[in-house]
Simulated scan of single mutants.
Amino acid sequence: MEPTLVHVSRFLAAGLTVRTQNRDEMRQDSAQIPELWGRFFAGDLANTIPGRLPDAPVVGVYSAYESDANGFFNVTAGVPVSAASSDFDGIEIEEGSYLVFEARGAMPDAVIQGWGTIWQYFAQHPEVQRRYATDFESYDGPDLVRIHIGVVA
């Protein structure tokens, strides 16, 4: 399935953040993202982060890229909010063009497969440039994630 190109307006998200790299996430002993999501859901943070926008989905935001898919980056498990909170890490999702990839199935396997599709897509389409500014996952149901990848328009 080909991704869809959409324009996303700037928005704020708040939640918990870790700094990691893909190489570490491939190994169980150094992966931080599963623990991040575990803390997020165990603390019921989706329902307790102040200023959550009505009917906003849970999001996973990728930001502060050191370089590209091989460097370090931040991951924030959170929700879109109306304003920053001193109790949680805040991140501004940049306005711009995003390719949207959909993945369906049991989580987290569906999102992992979705990222595999993304890496394959960019390997096959070198003419499409990623921005490496902000990317985000939008969890739009128990078995649906939409992964937004910022691209140069």
Rank of each mutant, 00 (worst) to 15 (best):
M1P: 07
T4R: 10
V6G: 06
V6K: 10
H7P: 09
H7S: 04
S9I: 07
F11I: 15
A13N: 08
G15C: 01
G15F: 00
L16A: 01
L16N: 02
T17F: 08
T20V: 13
Q21T: 11
E25G: 13
R27S: 13
R27K: 10
D29W: 11
S30Y: 14
S30N: 11
S30P: 11
A31P: 07
A31I: 06
I33L: 10
I33N: 15
I33G: 11
E35D: 14
L36E: 02
L36Y: 00
L36I: 00
W37I: 05
G38E: 15
G38S: 11
R39D: 00
F40V: 00
F41A: 03
F41C: 12
A42C: 10
G43D: 15
D44A: 03
A46T: 05
N47V: 00
T48I: 06
I49V: 15
P50C: 06
G51I: 04
G51E: 06
G51P: 03
R52E: 03
D55N: 11
A56S: 13
A56N: 03
P57D: 14
P57H: 11
V58D: 02
V59E: 01
V61A: 10
S63T: 14
A64H: 10
A64D: 08
Y65P: 00
Y65N: 06
S67V: 12
S67P: 09
A69T: 07
F72E: 15
F72L: 11
F72G: 11
F73I: 01
N74C: 15
T76M: 05
T76Q: 13
T76W: 03
A77I: 00
A77F: 01
G78H: 05
G78P: 06
V79N: 06
D87T: 14
F88C: 07
D89P: 00
D89V: 00
E92T: 14
I93P: 00
E95L: 03
E95T: 12
G96E: 10
S97R: 15
S97G: 06
S97W: 12
S97F: 04
S97Q: 12
V100F: 14
F101I: 14
F101R: 12
F101V: 12
A103Y: 10
A106R: 03
P108W: 06
P108S: 12
A110L: 04
I112R: 13
G114Y: 07
W115V: 07
W115I: 04
W115D: 06
T117D: 09
T117Q: 15
I118A: 02
I118N: 04
Y121P: 06
Y121W: 14
A123V: 07
A123I: 05
Q124G: 04
H125E: 06
P126H: 01
V128Y: 02
Q129M: 05
Q129F: 10
Q129K: 15
A133M: 10
F136P: 01
E137H: 05
D140Q: 09
D140L: 13
P142S: 05
L144S: 01
V145C: 09
R146C: 02
R146N: 06
H148S: 03
I149F: 05
I149S: 02
I149R: 05
G150H: 05
G150R: 06
V151K: 03
V151I: 11
A153D: 12
